[in-house]
Amino acid sequence: MTTSTGEAVQFWLLGIVAVLGALGTVAMKKAVHSALSLAGTMIILAVFYLANGAYFLGVVQIVVYTGAIMMLFLFVVMLVGITAADSLKETIRGQRWLAVLCGLGFGILLIAGLGNASVHSFTGLGQANSGGNVEGLARLIFTTYVWAFEITGALLITAAVGAMVLTHRERTERAATQRELAERRVREGAQVPPLPAPGVYARHNAVDIPGLLPDGTPAELSVSETLRARGQVRDVSGEALEHLKELEQRSEEYAEGEGESGARPENSANGAANSANGPANSANGPANSANGAAK
């Protein structure tokens, strides 16, 4: 007895994808990519469940695993695994060799054992699923396996409580008020004014672009620490300097044509506004300051 040709085709196509997904899970540098590969493999497995007559499990696989568990993974990746991509360089001597050796040996043994089993015929679920797959499962769960089912309930509650206990941090002292925080900043000599905003060039209004200091260098503080750690900062200071040159040239040309007296008070007012704004606006104002410098 064999399966239908359609199922065979489906198996061979999707099976290869599933293995690729599994390999991707293991081999991808970034945790997000691994998670996505795993999610793909899981969806394919759900399809295989359906093909094997486990309709309920197939749906549950998609809803619970791909839908809930993998999302949980992604949340944690977001919380935790965001600093940098993993290095795939092995640090424990001989670990990779041993792992490959043991894995290969184990896999070969498993496959050899399966080949030895030589199942040439199978029963199929036609009869078992005759009353409906979900009904059949429900009958078993609430009769034969009811005790195990109850225990799983207890397990889930324990897990939920355990997770809360593990992640919960008891507040042991009163939260500092805004005023206290401000006073502490002054006392410790930390950054007193607000942090500089990221670059808000008209063309690059994005959080991953640092603002530029008056001398044209990027202000590191203006970009999120996480992005810095990941190296995902786009530095446009060079570009800005290019622009600066053009601007200077243009302003010279303008000055030659317009004369000097009319522009001066406006420019000085501009500079005052800049200094009041502090470094926060410095990214905004290279043109202005350059303007001032040019005069």
Binding site: I92, Q95, C102, L109, L110, G113
Partner: peptide, 19 residues
């Protein structure tokens, strides 16, 4: 991970013995 390798190795030996 080293401990896990020895666990896998042990499991492999057990499977081999069983077979």
């Amino acid at each position: 991970r080293s401990y896990a390798v020895s666990m896998l190795g042990g499991t492999a030996v057990l499977v081999a013995a069983t077979l």
